[in-house]
């Protein structure tokens, strides 16, 4: 019953050959088995959004997927956002607008915002605010996160 399955996870374009039990969540596999610890785990039951990653273009809670379900899919995590030394516009905007304090929630917010804006670049402001209500932040009070995402959204549209 605790048999491990061998599988390959493709994270930010790199293949990771791992062996995990079926019950291993994608979040745990990304961190523990693939060593990509940028993705954070808060609640492990879908409430906080700290674990948000992009799977085949869709922002999802990686604590609510099993690793075996992500085989063959393109997984993107916060480690893949920057282009070399150049931060992604969303990362830069979070710095410019003080969208983070402790930073625990930040990878989840970045992947959420990037994931949604890539799918829906012209999303209206009400819907964008609704999207940002998906994740929890204990520090910032959200206002600077909203400012950062609005600014990055404009920049991403401009490109």
């Amino acid at each position: 019953m605790t048999d491990k399955t061998a599988l390959t996870l493709t994270i930010n374009g790199r293949d990771h050959a791992i062996a995990v039990e079926a019950r291993r969540t994608l979040a745990d596999a990304i961190r523990e088995d693939c060593g990509q610890t940028g993705t954070h785990i808060g609640c492990e039951h879908g409430i906080c959004g700290a674990c948000t990653v992009i799977v085949n273009g869709e922002p999802v809670r990686s604590c609510l997927m099993f690793a075996v379900q992500a085989e063959g899919k393109k997984i993107r995590t916060v480690e893949g956002l920057a282009d070399g030394e150049t931060l992604h516009p969303m990362q830069q905007a979070f710095m410019d607008h003080h969208g983070l304090q402790c930073g625990f929630c930040t990878p989840g917010f970045l992947m959420l915002a990037v994931g949604v804006l890539e799918r829906e670049p012209d999303i209206n402001d009400d819907d964008l605010l609704d999207v940002l209500s998906s994740n929890l932040c204990r520090c910032t009070g959200y206002q600077n996160i909203i400012k950062a995402v609005r600014a990055a959204a404009e920049q991403m549209r401009g490109k």
């Binding site: 959004g49 869709e58 999207v131 998906s134």
Partner: peptide
């Protein structure tokens, strides 16, 4: 639909 949970949860 937009009242159900949050965007990433609605994706799955």
């Amino acid at each position: 639909a937009r009242h159900i949970a949050h965007y990433p949860i609605r994706m799955r």
